[in-house]
């Protein structure tokens, strides 16, 4: 009797031991096999068009707000980058910033730190403006070293396909001054979104990326295309105006953490991710 209890206990221990170590199932979030929207589309429940235009009414009313804490985190991130003076690979953003500052001081403009404060004082949307510290010299300047337009001339085409969970190209090498046409296609089974961010902007929102109110708040980005349904696509032309590195990702909950984040960088500016 006692022996049988012992054997049961031993077998139980082995089984439990297996289940909590080698027997653990896939830790990845499995994506759905197929988007059910196709069936609903056939039934006429949802519009035929896969590229539905954005409803801007929520934006107009200011439903999604950037929390004030973001700006504090952003300033801390910029300060940290300044201290590292661009020697570290993770401070590539800082390098670009330092460069921008040199140029600015050379032309007798305000130093960067002051410019940042001013931008911060302007309140909403100031963060993205603060990113663009390069002096405007007649030509049209984009935010954070990228000029993004709907069309125009381009040097080459990059097709970016989104799936669960990743992009067809996770590392894109670009040169300063290059104009690239991006064709972004959602080839996955879930709606996705596409955005460009740089290091400081990423840091500004990253602290709350797993918080339960993530979807109820806004985050600043250099470019944002919200909600592409499965099968949807869009294109744009990006002009690389400064040396640096940028991240592109899908900011829907946990999509980025599951792998939907890639990098675009000029030579030598790539961050380790």
């Amino acid at each position: 009797m006692l022996k049988s209890f012992g054997i049961i206990g031993l077998v139980g221990t082995v089984v439990v031991g297996y289940l909590v170590t080698a027997g653990v199932g896939p830790l990845r979030q499995l994506p759905p096999e197929v988007s059910l929207l196709e069936g609903f589309r056939e039934d006429g429940f949802i519009p035929e068009n896969r590229n539905l235009p954005d409803d801007h009414s929520a934006e107009d009313v200011g439903v999604f707000q950037v929390p004030e804490q973001d700006e504090v985190v952003l300033e801390a991130a910029l300060e940290e980058m300044g201290d590292m003076s661009g020697m570290d690979m993770s401070a590539t953003g800082g390098e670009a910033m330092a460069e921008g500052m040199d140029m600015a001081t050379a032309e007798g403009e305000e130093p960067m730190a002051e410019g940042m404060d001013m931008a911060a004082a302007e309140g909403e949307g100031a963060m993205a403006e603060g990113m663009n510290m390069s002096p405007s010299s007649g030509a049209e300047m984009g935010e954070g070293g990228l000029l993004i337009t709907d069309g125009g001339e381009y040097d080459r085409v990059i097709e970016l396909t989104m799936t669960e969970w990743g992009f067809s190209e996770m590392n894109i090498e670009v040169k300063v001054g290059e104009r690239i046409k991006f064709v972004v296609v959602n080839d996955g089974e879930i709606p996705h979104e596409f955005m460009f961010m740089n290091g400081p902007l990423m840091a500004a929102a990253n602290y709350r990326v797993t918080r339960a109110d993530w979807s109820l708040l806004e985050h600043e980005a250099l470019f944002e295309k919200a909600l592409m349904l499965p099968g949807g696509d869009f294109d744009m032309v990006v002009e690389i105006q400064e040396a640096g590195s940028w991240m592109f990702m899908c900011m829907l909950p946990y999509h980025m953490q599951l792998g939907m984040m890639g990098q675009m960088s000029t030579p030598g500016m790539a961050m380790s991710m």
Partner: peptide
């Protein structure tokens, strides 16, 4: 109007 809005 067949416009899509994310989370609003």
């Amino acid at each position: 109007e067949e416009e899509i809005s994310r989370n609003a």
